[in-house]
């Protein structure tokens, strides 16, 4: 092999901006706040949060716990994305910990609810569930497209499918956190089935897309 390719690459060299984890984090935080404002303005806040704005702090803990739960999952997934985006990166248990802990919480709550109310825990899922899934899927999808355009397509991962899945999980979880500003359905079945369903759809689609688009 001649030195031509080395000379050619060196001649072609332009300053390259390193892939910035900080930019990913700031972008995700801004997008989540914008999504929450969108939900607040168009859908309206859940009554407890309205009361909170009115100075009533004696609110149902789920009003803040639910968004926090999804922010934790989203942040963990985003951390995985930052790791996996480099060739030497891999999926590590500590970045999945928020997801596993959150799943554990919801499952324990589900079992407790089943013991307390029997199959009543599955009733009264109600109308807004379609809206919930649609919002998480569409908002998460929009977030994913934004992440792809601004950050993800510069990645060089050794695990395209996993990076895709983690990106989808991050985008959809943060959208779910924003949607939780509006939604006052807090039963474990609802969180696992409806929120979880929406997040799972985006994660699965992103994993499939990742395997194709994140190759290099």
């Amino acid at each position: 092999m001649s030195d031509d390719i080395l000379d050619h690459l060196a001649r072609d060299l332009k300053p390259a901006k390193p892939l910035s984890v900080k930019a990913l984090g700031i972008g995700a935080a801004v997008a989540t706040v914008l999504a929450a404002v969108y939900i607040f303005v168009l859908y309206g806040a859940r009554p407890e949060l309205k009361a909170l704005l009115g100075g009533d702090f004696s609110i149902d803990p789920m009003a803040w716990f639910k968004p926090l739960l999804f922010i934790a999952i989203g942040a963990g997934a985003l951390w995985s994305v930052a790791d996996l985006a480099r060739p030497e990166g891999r999926l590590r248990l500590r970045t999945l910990a928020p997801l596993l802990i959150a799943l554990g919480f919801v499952l324990v709550a589900l079992v407790a609810d089943l013991f307390a109310r029997g199959f009543g825990a599955f009733r009264n899922i109600g109308d807004p569930s379609v809206l919930c899934v649609l919002t998480i899927v569409c908002g998460g999808g929009a977030g994913l497209i934004l992440m792809w355009r601004l950050w993800l397509r510069r990645a060089a991962t050794s695990h395209p499918g996993v990076l895709g899945a983690m990106s989808g999980l991050a985008a959809a979880s943060l959208m779910a956190a924003a949607y939780a500003v509006h939604c006052d359905r807090d039963t474990p079945v609802y969180i696992l089935g409806i929120y979880g369903g929406g997040v799972a759809i985006v994660t699965a689609v992103a994993a499939v897309l990742g395997r194709r688009l994140l190759r290099w």
């Binding site: 092999m1 390193p18 510069r154």
Partner: peptide, 17 residues
Amino acid sequence: VQMTLLSLHEKRHTYDP
């Protein structure tokens, strides 16, 4: 080797300084 050098060039921004 050539492909790796090309990838190094194209993806050099993914190296964390």
